[in-house]
Design a binder for these strands. Sequence first.
RNA 1: AGGCGGGUAGCUCAGUGGGAGAGCAUCGGCCUUACAAGCCGGGGGUCACGGGUUCAAAUCCCGUUCCGCCUACCA
Length: 881
Amino acid sequence: MEPIAKSYEPKEVERKWYDYWEREHLFRADPTSSKPAYAIVIPPPNVTGTLHMGHALNNTLQDILCRFKRMTGFNVLWQPGTDHAGIATQNVVEKDLAARGTDRHAVGREAFIERVWEWRSKYGGLILNQLKRLGCSCDWSRERFTMDEGLSRAVKEVFVRLYEEGLVYRGDYIINWCPRCHTALADLEVEHHEKESRLYHIRYPFESGAGHLVVATTRPETLLGDTAVAVNPEDARYAALGDRNVLLPVLNKPIPIIFDTYVDTEFGTGALKITPAHDPNDFEIGNTHQLERVKVIDENGMMNEMAGPYQGMDRFECREKIVQDLETLNLLEKIEPYQNAIGHCYRCKTMIEPLLSKQWFVRTAPLAQKAGEAVKSGKTRIYPANWEGVYFEWMDNIRDWCVSRQIWWGHRIPAWYCRACGEVHVAKQALQACTRCGDEDLIQETDVLDTWFSSALWPFSTLGWPDETAELKTFYPTAALVTGFDILFFWVARMMMMGIHFMGEIPFRDVYIHALVRDAEGKKMSKSKGNVIDPLEVMDQYGTDAFRFTLAALAAQGRDIKLSEDRILGYRHFVNKLWNAARFALMNMDTAGTEPAAAPPATLADRWILTRVAAVSEAVRQAIDTYQFNEAADLCYQFVWHEVCDWYLEMAKRHLYGKDPLHKQATAATIQTVLEASLKLLHPFMPFVTEEIWQRMPNTEGSIMTAPFPGAADFPSDDAALTEMDILMGVITGIRNIRGEMNIPPSKNVSVVVDASQKTHREILNRNMDPVRVLAKVDQASVGERVPKPDGSATVVFEQISVHVLLKGLIDFAEEKKRIKKGIQKLEKEWGTAGKKLANHGFLQKAPPEIVREVREKAETLSARLSKMKENLSLLEEIDA
RNA sequence: AGGCGGGUAGCUCAGUGGGAGAGCAUCGGCCUUACAAGCCGGGGGUCACGGGUUCAAAUCCCGUUCCGCCUACCA
């Protein structure tokens, strides 16, 4: 292996180790393993997709979980794959056709679908390769696609079974129609945007006699399809109307006035025009009153033959014209500005047209009830828990799911119609003949299923269902699902419903909902806003490990992530820090040898760092297990940088550079232990750099991926070392503080006199004066009891220890007095609050005893420190005087 | 309209009953043989505002305000 470079260069390293992991089959799951199973199914990215920040975060978190679980002894399956993304993919290929001057209708259905498959085989793997760059440890040998043979079989099976159970039906309903995509959309696929709009007050003349009824509407063009006007039976204004008719303006068609409590007397004029074929509420009212349904707008958003003189006009054009005509007829009372939320297609942003149409639906209520219960009972837990409320809200108010789509790319609905008798057959395969009339002329339904129908089966369809496979047995239910909240309803809720219904068991035990990645201003990243940060560019610039670590460190629960490049830069520095720590360690292991020393590590630093690594390992395990990725990342960061590098390695240098071979070896062995542990702790976050270093280390075997994750039991813990080290750090920091404030250059050594009133403190310091000398740049040092403050010294007080730094000729008395006064002020404030508490009877009586004891001890320490500092101050003042 | 989340240092954010923290930025000192992508030290906060509960509140409750998001069939 080539000599270790001064700074970490991610590019080649990343490719090298990813290839190695794949070559060694380290991502492979084993359905026959005796280890406990841990499975995650990937939220399948669209085949049309390219990696964006959302994917990067989502998959980084999953990879952290998978790598962590492998290292803690689980048989891990991370199931990868892609989604066929019906409308999105069809749009892409259609755009391509348009560029060639043709369209799908000219090409024909079969040839078109063939083209989509071609497109998919050419570009569909793009995002998966990008996931590999991110380091994702998916079991690629099990890659699935929602349209592949096995999954298509599962889709058919589910559809047919639901139909047989009466949970799938076909019927005439108002659906959301996208006139551009030419398909029905589920309620969820409609985005509502607040729009400046107008409320038109239109006069509907009475059929008989004079006068009119004024109706308020935002959509005057739909009046052509009105089949009634409704008022509230409680509304005194209209009580006398009886069963009169009004005349539909322009068309002069008589329509009845009906009474329905749905009508809000407060809104508009209290009279509501009813258009059952073009409004979901009107449709419902039309049903109860058995009104005729008159469709006046067609699938292209154009007025049809029922629209009389307006036939052939676009719906918006018609609106303008009809308003003009109403004005001419003196039937327009007024126009008010109005704001309302209007539905748009989530794919193409075209305004939705509610349209009466024959569609396939899934009856969701019975499925939703069980899916709700599974979370209520805690069988599936949602993290963070506040999403449970959102989940319940949706499950409790669920409406039937319109699953048919009038597009070509997708699972064609397995239903056949008999041309002769009209019988509908739902079956897994085409029938030879109609079972009712025996006719052989059967035609298959042309609609396909909503993309989310197949995604809803993902946790079991990918494992081989409906066959009873070893995979299903081992990995279902899966352990965790990691996803963004934006698809909580689209996907998570539906997987719950389908999983429980068909597997008889929840699809996953935990659902972890992570944040959305926004730009540095907190705006949603979008191409149109131009504020998109491309994860691939970030990886190029900063390295994948730094990027992944940033995402993890920012992934606090319950808050969106504002991604700023500063943070990524900061964590790149951390990667480099780790790299250099390893470089240092490796250089010294070379010279010290790597066999564990004969004598156990005896220095305070060794005992301390091993105790710390034990505690940190445990804390990191806990944090990852509870999805606190930011906590885990931060623990690693603080530990590696500020404990291992800043303190331990600095203290270890003395032995490494010293002449005692035994100490040298013991220290090298501890460094090896601590470095190995650090690498393993960081591996789930930074897979590449940790593997690179791991492979360079002596005495490591195989990949770090298969190394056991550190735990508390792996290291000797020694609580005394923690308190001793606290003392030592306090003294060193104190001296450094004085040096800094007094502007003593690092090249200049100082002498110190330590006055410690406690015997244990004196012992600790006497045993560890060498590290103090090195780390605080001290030449002469002595420790004593009740040592008088030397002339020309600056003093820092820590616990009950005074450290006098001799600064003959260097000291600026005014500065020193200022410094001490500042310190006294700070302490007095703290002492004040502690004293207040202790003077409070309520506190002494009601606070837990250990808290009271803590405060009391603190007050004592503070007061001892304070008196020492004041003593110092008065000494200084004497000298000054 | 309803619901949810947020307001903590200049910036980005942790912290959810007992010591206000991190990273970046900033200021001062350092080319100390792992690392200047570094080392040492300093400064900086009325924890949005008002009330309440509690011995004790950034943390729990109520209200106000600002920001963001989600859901919704008042035309």
